[in-house]
Design a protein around this nucleic acid. Structure first.
Length: 102
DNA sequence: CTAATGACCATTA
DNA sequence: ATAATGGCCATTA
């Protein structure tokens, strides 16, 4: 597996998300200096399965948990396990949104 | 090079 | 609340 520079940057940020907190795709894209690359971010995360990246802590801006390579239900399960309250498929970003830091 | 794809987003109805 | 639409971007075929 070869990683592109973009993917490395994405993983770099995702790894900084503390346990029990989440970050949105848009936030990460913004942190990379590409506020409109949220779609590409999701794409990059889709291939992280071989790496050690807590991709389950990345959700949609709407609060919806978003997708997951191994199934959305799995994603929700892991989040709950970390102490995140999940209502249906939604999360309260006010409570669990991680603040970005450089 | 071009074209298609997708773990998205904001707007609109 | 849901559904459809256009846009954006890196990656891959």
């Amino acid at each position: 597996m070869t990683l592109t520079a973009f993917q490395r940057d994405v993983y770099k940020w995702v790894q900084q998300i503390p346990r029990g907190k989440v970050m949105t795709y848009a936030q990460i894209a913004h942190a990379l200096g590409m506020p409109q690359a949220m779609r590409a971010v999701g794409n990059a995360l889709n291939k992280n399965i071989f790496f050690d990246v807590p991709c389950h802590r990345v959700v949609r801006s709407s609060g919806n948990v978003g997708g997951y390579a191994w199934g959305t239900d799995k994603k929700i399960a892991v989040l709950r396990k970390e102490g995140v309250r999940v209502n249906g498929e939604y999360i309260d970003l006010k409570l669990y949104g991680a603040r970005k830091h450089s």
